[in-house]
């Protein structure tokens, strides 16, 4: 069967070499909770406070109180990354590869994002961002903070390509805007060297909101009104590891040119990371309501 005849692959638009194709009906495929570094004794108390609780990803059947099992784009299961119901909390799942060459790298996925439906226990209907339901707009949509697709790459120089969909600002007001960080992610070594110490709910990618900048036009996605309807969105993100640059980000019918979007690099060298090629996805809540990012499947391809 050729790629175009296989529905699982035909929905993607890969570069010549497919590195990974992760269908979450067949396991987690190496997607795992991100955690900061620990010491030589295995003492997890030495892990940075803001990097010790990114939550284990789940193989989710997209199960909701009103309809039961929604299921994924294909089959039953999707990878779910979930936050705690705690303002500023971030869930992060990471996939770890290395590079056998340099050039174009493309990350594709079908995703959806949801806030947790309200219950007597979670009191989401009374949390910040809630508001008046009008039978079209559901306040749950403004209780979803942001999701992020990102990399951690090291070819001698370590850098992160990052794209975040900022659904709401920190005051739970709609932004629907793609943003990027102008600074590299704080690292455990910087903490170890006494250069910084961040609180548990810090935005680990770039803690200062002023370090995030918009690219492209605002983009409405398909939350589909309530927290229990799952509509899958196509995302295609292209970077170039030869030039350490972003190229473009496609979300459904919109392609955002990212060639001018800076990629902050670390001024210092990091050992033990030669040819590092990590991808991570994260979800961050801006209110005391659980936020979820679901991936039906992922495909990473390269031109090398």
């Amino acid at each position: 069967m050729t790629r175009t005849e296989d529905p699982a692959l035909a929905r993607f638009n890969p570069l010549p070499r497919v590195l990974v194709h992760d269908d979450f009906d067949t396991g987690a495929h190496g997607w795992v909770e991100l955690i900061g570094n620990h010491d030589e004794h295995g003492d997890l108390g030495t892990v940075d406070d803001h990097m010790r609780d990114f939550r284990p990803p789940q193989l989710s059947s997209c199960n909701f109180f009103d309809v039961g099992t929604h299921g994924a784009l294909s089959g039953t299961y999707a990878l779910k990354v979930a936050t705690r119901p705690l303002t500023g909390h971030t869930g992060v799942a990471i996939r770890r590869l290395t590079m056998a060459g340099r050039g174009l790298v493309q990350f594709e996925t079908y995703l959806t994002y949801k806030s947790e439906a309200a219950s007597a226990e979670n009191r989401a209907a009374y949390a910040a961002g809630s508001g008046k339901w009008d039978a079209n707009f559901h306040p749950s949509e403004n209780q979803f903070g942001a999701f992020t697709v990102a990399t951690d790459i090291c070819d001698g120089v370590r850098y992160h390509c990052v794209a975040r969909y900022l659904n709401t600002d920190l005051a739970n007001r709609p932004r629907r805007q793609w943003v990027y960080p102008a600074v590299p992610e704080p690292t455990p070594r910087e903490h170890f060297e006494g250069k910084l110490k961040l609180p548990p709910t810090a935005d680990f990618t770039a803690p200062d909101p002023d370090d995030w900048h918009a690219f492209g036009d605002a983009q409405e996605l398909c939350y589909n009104e309530v927290p229990t309807k799952v509509n899958w969105h196509y995302l295609r993100w292209l970077i170039d590891t030869r030039t350490r640059t972003n190229v473009e980000l496609q979300l459904n019918d919109t392609v955002h040119d990212m060639r001018g979007v800076p990629v902050p690099a670390y001024a210092e060298e990091y050992g033990s990371l030669r040819n590092l090629l990590n991808f991570y996805v994260s979800v961050r809540t801006h209110t005391d309501v659980r936020n979820f990012l679901y991936l039906d499947s992922v495909l990473v391809s390269v031109d090398w």
């Binding site: 939550r55 789940q58 059947s61 199960n63 099992t69 039953t76 299961y77 979930a82 705690r84």
Partner: peptide, 8 residues
Amino acid sequence: TEPYEAAW
């Protein structure tokens, strides 16, 4: 604890 999906 936080909820965990285990239907599979």
